[in-house]
Design a protein around this nucleic acid. Sequence first.
DNA 1: GTAAACATGTAACAGGTTACATGATTGT
DNA 2: ACAATCATGTAACCTGTTACATGTTTAC
Lengths: 170, 170
Amino acid sequence: MSLKHALLGLLSERPASGYDLLKTFETSLANVWPATQSQIYTELTKLAGSGQITVTAEGPRGRKEYALTDEGMTELRHWLTETRPQRNTRSDVLLRVFFLGVLRPEQAREYLTGLTEMSREGYEQLRQLADSIDWDDDNLSVYGRIALEYGLRFNAMRQEWAEWAAGQIK
Amino acid sequence: MSLKHALLGLLSERPASGYDLLKTFETSLANVWPATQSQIYTELTKLAGSGQITVTAEGPRGRKEYALTDEGMTELRHWLTETRPQRNTRSDVLLRVFFLGVLRPEQAREYLTGLTEMSREGYEQLRQLADSIDWDDDNLSVYGRIALEYGLRFNAMRQEWAEWAAGQIK
DNA sequence: GTAAACATGTAACAGGTTACATGATTGT
DNA sequence: ACAATCATGTAACCTGTTACATGTTTAC
């Protein structure tokens, strides 16, 4: 149920419409918690229904701007401080590694060098993202930068691992 | 749709019952692709229906032993070589980082030191797991060890990152 | 005898994806 | 005028989780 908390979190920075939030999901949150348009609108309606957010303004084209309520902020704080993160990490990438034995060694090595490449590209993309953002001093910038650093380190780690792993075969 | 491939992959090593596979998911695959009992049995029935696996033996208590068919092996190879891994990584842990700004700095730091601890524990658990397994030379051992090394490096990376991040606050 | 382990199956629900459907406003 | 962008909503489907439901065999 973390899409809910992602929305509450974004609205804690500033009021926004479903469309605004969708754009944020497509850019900054895409690597951490992807969400589709249909999911976002549905969840916003639910959150408004339960009083955790409210419509604060209506604009052209039926635009509805939502803002966090006190209740929503309480829920957000509760999620951050009282609940432990524990989502199961399913890894498509790693699952395949378990079964590389059904392939010929050179095919297995090919898969791993593919991962090396994928990780290098991921690293580069994040570096470019970091350069393209003009970081100011608001909260999302400070913590967004910390999250991005995680992404950089993650890709670097995975690249080194994949290189090592390719060397382990046969 | 990777539960299917996880099952095909496991059956490529040796025939097994749903119950056997469930045990494997609880141990070796738990960190990579968790699956529940109900999911496994449902998927096995579907795979048998589509001819990718077959019942090769029936034992006591209604035990059904499944084995991979040629068709199943083809599908497994196809998945490994022709499809690119691309599953979205949703990270509960990282999502919270984005919103730590709503907390007081010491609470935010507390969250990050909690992650340091979680990562250290994760590392230790994997080390113990590595010691407890008697690795032989079959495919699942070779590649299982490579996957486990990934887990070790991942936890080490995350621990260092969380320590660094805690130092970034205020 | 009885508890633990073996063994399977189904139903209800929650969350996420894809596709369909519609329309208004802005910029060129 | 036309395309791009803004803007929302719903339906069908798939995957995964939790809970219910049932029964057998083995070991102590």
